[in-house]
Amino acid sequence: MLNWLLEPLTYSFMRTGLAAATLVGITCAVLGAYVVLRRMAFIGDALSHTVLPGLVVAYLNGWSLFGGAIVAGLLTALGIGWVSRRGTVREDTAIGVLFTAMFAFGILLMSRVGSFRDLSHILFGNILGVRPADLWLIAVIAVSVLLTLFLLHKELELSSYDPIYAEVIGLKADRMRLVLLVLLAFTVVTCIQVVGVILTSALLVTPAAAAALLTNRLPRLMLLASVIAVGSALVGLYASYYVNVASGAAIVLCCTACFGCAWLARTLRSH
């Protein structure tokens, strides 16, 4: 059994993948707690899709894929806030319009590449393809996001459950939301390497949603969601190695299985 577990780790690409999966899993889970509790699942999904044109433009010009994705993600986050700022267009409508437009633009650019296969790892992720340089960038982003969440914990928490009181004491709730969107844009970019554009929102939403069914304390929810996300990432990684299946899909399905178990446990407990 021990050999079975250790054998994949003799390869450096597996060790790098494992480290990336752990970092991304924890970041997504902790940030995902706010995404779920503030009902921002749709925007999380949208942001992950809207980085596509940034990735493709960067790929076509030989620029940093991370850089391209972050620029596109930040532009979308700010664009959604700008379009819906006066309430003329509802925020979910603004998200729906911008998200599909950006994704369509990305596909349009992809069709010019000639072969979709070149960019399939963007759509579906390739955790075993993470290079040491990527890992460093993922680590810097993960630590920065987690540190920001730690330092702003009380403000993010208050503006999540009582934005009006937050405003009264001088804490601008819309700026806190913008901070979350920017953190989300950075996190999504690291996540794409692991599960791809299409499945990124699953890592943000499913572990936190499962944990929310099991506890009613925020720090415990974040911890539990991290355990679920990292555990699922490990299972996905080993499944990819031993059974030769797509790692991203395996990770997401493992998260979904955890959610199913949590839902069952909650249902049984409430009876």
């Binding site: 403000e155 459950y161 009582d162 009006i164 009181y165 925020l218």
Partner: peptide
């Protein structure tokens, strides 16, 4: 300011102590 009860998300996973502590922020 004490808002109307409906303006607070009561499902949010925090304790009574934590909610009241926000008055010190």
């Amino acid at each position: 300011y004490l808002p109307q009860r409906g303006e607070v998300d009561w499902r949010f996973p925090i304790t009574v102590e934590r909610l009241v502590l926000a008055g010190r922020y």
